[in-house]
Design a protein around this nucleic acid. Structure first.
Lengths: 193, 193
DNA sequence: GTACAAAACAAACAGTTGTTTGGTAAAGTG
DNA sequence: CACTTTACCAAACAACTGTTTGTTTTGTAC
């Protein structure tokens, strides 16, 4: 059918565009990043970007999709080794935070950009994020909890706390793994005397 | 010294500017809101805004300051009635979420806008936010907790989870008070069987 | 080597951005 | 009532925005 007449060229700079866009979207946010900012970093002209993307929002969608792919892969690799429900959840949170705070600008874009703020691609973005977060639904379903514990609230609280760490995290001072483990521990054990 | 020669006029529209700016900053974010968007809502010309503010960032700072004032007032009024440490914390979280999700566009701006994204006023914005959050430092210090519980992690987790609710909250479906109480309860009691 | 599509350049476009300037009606003060 | 200052209007500014168009280079397949 729509088989490409020829393979893409080996020297095409699509990966560089995505990398630089991810870096800037993560650092400044989507609206504050201009097309010229992105292409300046990789010695390209503004118009050339439109060979790869029809609009700025489509570039965001591509970065966002790659971000979900990476963070999702990281988390799945981490939980595959474990069998104990609590250890699996902890491993997932650690991997989530690692991707979010250290590893990947792509992952940071997924957390930083609110789909609703970009109406042109809000649908696809929300779908991608929901699909990713479904892992946590399953992980928390598998937890042996006291009857009456609200699992949805548990998930929203945990993921919210993890994601918000993006606003206060400082590389030298804080440790992603320690943060994640600390948060899970606070939910698991009672804090009260 | 710099005493104003005269009092401000009774018919000046500064309050309307602030209201409309808060509404739009909360809804679309700071960079996505234009000066023209703001003045359009109150039948004013773009240039007129610059009688009140030297730059767009200064308008944000004013909205932000008012936001901190309101959310802070709401929280302090809520905890004043209580004496039990856990009840005080719960009341503070409920008030925080009420301001954040329902009551005030000003409060939403405080949570939505990252000070670091607006370098021109990042200093004042961060100072305002830190001063507000110090209430939660005190509230959590007063809690009778098991030895070894990381109070900073507890605070960051709780506030993070509350603030992040801005991204998934839907007015009809969710209830701010229930969310806040649920989150505090999850930290207080053990969830594990 | 030649043909063809991929991927970029070069230059502009129309619209929008935050902001400035000079003028003016009117509210508040004495 | 005269006078000062407040608060705005009207119109423009230069810079920047995402995007389009026509043209050129370059890798790849035959």
């Amino acid at each position: 059918m729509a088989t490409p007449a020829r393979l893409p060229r080996a020297d095409n700079r699509l990966p560089q565009i995505l990398d630089e866009a991810a870096r800037l979207f993560a650092e400044r946010g989507f609206p504050a990043t201009t097309i010229r900012d992105i292409v300046r970093g990789i010695d390209m002209l503004p118009g050339s970007l439109y060979y790869h993307f029809a609009a700025k929002e489509d570039l965001l969608a591509a970065v966002y999709a790659e971000g979900v792919k990476r963070i999702s892969g990281h988390v799945h690799a981490a939980i595959a080794k474990r069998t104990d429900p609590w250890q699996r959840l902890t491993a997932a949170c650690v991997a989530h935070l690692e991707a979010l705070l250290d590893e990947s600008a792509y992952a940071q874009v997924v957390i930083r950009v609110r789909p609703g703020d970009v109406p042109e691609v809000a649908g696809p973005l929300t779908a991608l994020r929901d699909r990713y977060e479904s892992v946590f639904v399953d992980l928390i379903d598998a937890l042996p909890l006291k009857p009456g514990v609200d699992r949805r609230a548990l998930r929203l609280m945990l993921l919210g706390a993890l994601n918000w760490s993006q606003t206060w995290y400082r590389p030298g001072r804080d440790d992603p793994r320690a943060i994640a483990r600390n948060f899970v521990a606070l939910l698991r054990k009672p804090t009260e005397t």
